[in-house]
Computed example of a mutant assay.
Amino acid sequence: MKVVAFERNLQGTGASRRLRNSGKTPGIIYGAAAEPQLIELDHNALWHALKKEAFHSSILDLEVAGKSQRVLLRDVQYHPFRQLVLHVDFQRVDANKKLHTKVPVHFMNQETNPAVKLGGAIISHVITEVEIECLPADLPEFVELDLAKVEAGQSLHAKDITLPKGVSLVAHIESENPVVAAAAVPAGAAADAAAEGAAEGETPAA
Rank of each mutant, 00 (worst) to 15 (best):
P80Q: 10
A137V: 11
C134M: 08
V71H: 10
D61N: 11
N9Y: 14
V64S: 10
A158W: 04
A194D: 11
E176S: 15
P80D: 10
V180M: 02
R74E: 11
K97A: 09
K165G: 04
Q154P: 08
L139T: 05
S22G: 01
V4N: 15
K2W: 12
V143L: 03
P186Y: 12
E202Y: 12
K52V: 02
K117H: 04
K2D: 13
V103M: 03
P26K: 08
A15E: 11
A206M: 01
A199I: 01
E176D: 14
R17Q: 13
G153Q: 04
I161D: 03
L145T: 01
T25A: 01
A45D: 08
A115W: 04
H87W: 01
A205P: 02
N21I: 07
E141A: 07
S124D: 09
G197Q: 06
V170W: 13
K51I: 07
Q11R: 15
W47Y: 13
T25E: 03
A32F: 13
T128R: 10
L73A: 00
R74Y: 08
L41N: 01
P104F: 05
M108H: 05
A95C: 00
G27R: 00
A198Y: 11
H43A: 08
K117F: 11
H79K: 00
R82C: 00
V88K: 02
E40G: 05
A199E: 12
T112E: 15
E141W: 05
D192N: 10
S16K: 12
F6G: 00
V116G: 02
K24S: 06
E63K: 04
D42W: 01
H100R: 15
V88Y: 01
P136K: 08
E111I: 14
L38E: 09
I127R: 07
V130S: 00
L139N: 11
D160R: 00
V105M: 08
A171R: 13
E200L: 10
D89F: 09
A187Q: 13
T203N: 02
L10E: 14
N44K: 12
Q110H: 09
L62M: 08
V3L: 13
H87I: 03
T25W: 03
L86Q: 10
L73Q: 05
V130G: 02
T162C: 07
I122H: 07
D75P: 03
K102A: 05
V116T: 05
E144T: 13
S155F: 09
D42S: 00
